[in-house]
Write a protein that binds this DNA or RNA. Structure first.
Length: 568
RNA sequence: UGGGGUGUAGCCAAGCGGUAAGGCAACGGGUUUUGGUCCCGUCAUCCGAGGGUUCGAAUCCUUCCACCCCAGCCA
């Protein structure tokens, strides 16, 4: 089973305020009942779980109302963007299970038309070329509580503006020497409307248009018009763009665009123990704090995929967190819950011992091997069965043995009888130590009448242990992941101390794990439940005969909780 | 101190004048050849605070408080 071949589990998605607006528009016959959205990433980084929220919202709305959702790259700033990012973004959106059909666009596709729109604004006296430097513009913008000052170039004649703007395009001027600005109101209480910059000169090559353009439009100018050009009806973005909506509307108003898209804003996702800002993620990658964008500790889509997350679990998560305008910090435990819920249903069960301890069954014949039949998933017969070899020397989990059994302990301890899953009952008869005094091996006896792991006499054996036959086991590397950040909310920290909050124990590598032999046939990306241990995904770093597994998440562990409570 | 937003349980989040959904977490209990899953139960006399309207307010009005966003030629 490959995780991206699985059937989608689509439950009825709950409503939210944006869906309510769309539904009301459809009922009222707005846009002739048409619904069109778009997911507009800037290709300057990899997608993360926060983007997944937006993707699910936008594509989900289109699907629910029989509309369409475009994938549009907001590639208006070539100095930050790269084709590597556009490829990863396309892959991630597809992997999440969404299809943009023929709706793949780039803001850069519209550069010619955007230039024409800008020229119209100039002709209408609604935009002007400003010769001030960036510093001067900043100084004259005023502050939150005091008005700005008009630029000395604000009232240039239309003809001169047209000429200058044309020459900006022709590449006659240096970077930063001039900009095109909207003529709105330098004392507007909304800072966004204090004559915002529409175009700036950047004589740098663009990943799609090459050397063609020395000027590039700003987000506020390009975005609303790109939406209009594509006939988007509902333009959904995050809260920090709320102030920009006034400019979004201003541009469309001045250009007389009708019918026009409307912008709606929702609160971006925040998740505990991680970071969801591109700036911070890119730092983690660049400074080598993680192995790359797809490091399984990263909240990126590619990281989650490599970790063992399924598209379904991520979609379910996005549905459960809801969509609102309130600041939020969602507990990572919810994401993990969604993964377990999905994987419990579909991951084949398998035996893997993370910290092997030899167990020798003294009364079991030296040279005998037998096979036991295991259900791949006891709750789903359709997943089939398999045979697993058993012999005199096994590996069990070191943590399943205690010399001093605490209260309620029903695993292995001197004199205690336990069940080896699907095999036999064994009783610990002796403990062998190495020179340093460490427990090196357990000596046990087994009861032949308990074949299959069951006895007719009604004997109470509470503990059931996973195991693997030493002679048949495959040695594997297992990577255990913890939270990227120790602090629940590292975003509270400033840029400097942010790195200090990284969890030093976010990755533990166990080189000597022992897994059942069938696992050497697994393919990268396949996910298994190691019984009693958790869910593990085969990593691409695996080589033939040397599997590497990533622990996606643990199983719920009631015993660990009991022990934790005792500590308190 | 200007403008734009948001406040419902530890965390998300419904609720749209008729007496506080649901999920996660937590905590009890049952089933169990995974201390998993599953099942059952507990968990807001109260909706940021005060005042008002109303037979009735989380929902309407009002005052206040707290938090977030905006002064890029980033998006």
């Amino acid at each position: 089973m490959t995780k991206d071949q699985r059937p989608a589990a689509t439950a009825a998605a709950p409503s939210n305020f944006i869906k309510d607006i769309v539904r009301a528009d459809v009922r009222a016959g707005a846009y002739n009942g048409r619904v069109q959205t778009r997911f507009p990433p800037e290709p300057n980084g990899y997608l993360h779980i926060g983007h997944a929220k937006s993707i699910c919202l936008n594509f989900g709305l289109a699907a629910e109302f029989g509309g369409r959702c475009n994938l549009r790259f907001d590639d208006t700033n070539p100095v930050k963007e790269d084709v590597e990012y556009v490829e990863s973004i396309k892959q991630d959106v597809r992997w999440l299970g969404f299809d943009w059909g023929d709706g793949l666009f780039y803001a850069s596709d519209y550069f010619e038309r955007l230039y024409a729109y800008a020229s119209r604004l100039v002709e209408a006296g609604k935009a002007y070329v400003d010769d001030q430097s960036a510093d001067e513009i900043r100084e004259n913008r005023g502050t939150l509580t005091s008005p700005g000052k008009d630029s000395p170039w604000r009232n240039r004649p239309v003809e001169e503006n047209l000429d200058l703007f044309g020459r900006m395009r022709a590449g006659e001027f240096e970077d930063g020497s001039r900009v095109l600005r909207a003529k709105i109101d330098m004392s507007h209480p909304n800072m966004v409307l204090r004559d915002p910059t529409l175009y700036r000169i950047k004589r740098v090559p663009h990943h799609r248009t090459g050397q063609k353009w020395p000027i590039y439009p700003m987000y506020d100018f390009a975005h609303c018009l790109s939406d209009a050009i594509e006939a988007v009806t509902h333009s959904i973005c995050t809260l920090e763009f709320e102030n920009n909506r006034a400019l979004y509307d201003w541009v469309l108003d001045e250009l007389g665009i009708e019918p026009r898209p409307r912008q709606y804003e929702f609160a971006r996702l925040n998740l505990t123990h991680t970071a969801l800002s591109k700036r911070k993620l890119i730092r983690l990658v660049r400074e080598g704090r993680v192995a790359g964008w797809d490091d399984p500790r990263m909240p990126t889509i590619s990281g989650l995929r490599r970790r063992g997350y399924t598209p379904e679990s991520i979609r379910t998560f996005c549905e459960r967190i809801g969509v609102s305008k309130a600041e939020n910090l969602v507990d990572m435990a919810l994401l993990e819950h969604c993964l377990r819920e999905d994987l419990n249903r579909r991951a084949p069960r398998v035996m893997g011992v993370l910290d092997p301890l030899r167990l020798v069954i003294e009364n079991y014949p030296e040279d005998q091997t037998e096979e036991f039949e295991f259900a791949n998933n006891p709750e789903d017969e359709a997943m089939g069965r398999r045979m697993v070899p058993f012999s005199r020397v096994l590996y069990v989990e070191r943590d399943d043995f205690r010399e001093q059994a605490p209260g309620k302990w029903f695993r292995l301890a001197p004199g205690r009888e336990v069940r080896l899953r699907y095999a036999y009952y064994v009783t610990c008869t002796d403990v062998v130590r190495d020179a340093s005094g460490e427990v090196a091996e357990l000596r046990c006896s087994f009861d032949p009448k308990t074949r299959g792991g069951w006895s007719k006499d009604g004997r109470k054996v509470k503990g059931t242990l996973h195991w693997v036959s030493a002679a048949h086991a495959v040695r594997a590397e297992v990577r255990l992941y913890g939270n990227l950040f120790s602090a629940a909310d590292p975003s509270g920290a400033d840029e400097a101390e942010f790195m200090e909050l990284l969890n030093p124990d976010s990755l533990r590598v166990l080189p000597g794990c022992m897994v059942e032999p069938g696992l050497c046939l697994a393919k990268p990306g396949e996910i298994f439940q190691f019984e009693r241990n958790g869910y593990f995904c085969l990593d691409p770093d695996s080589t033939p005969g040397r599997p590497v597994f990533n622990r996606a998440t643990t199983l719920r562990d009631t015993w660990a909780r009991i022990e934790r409570q005792k500590d308190k």
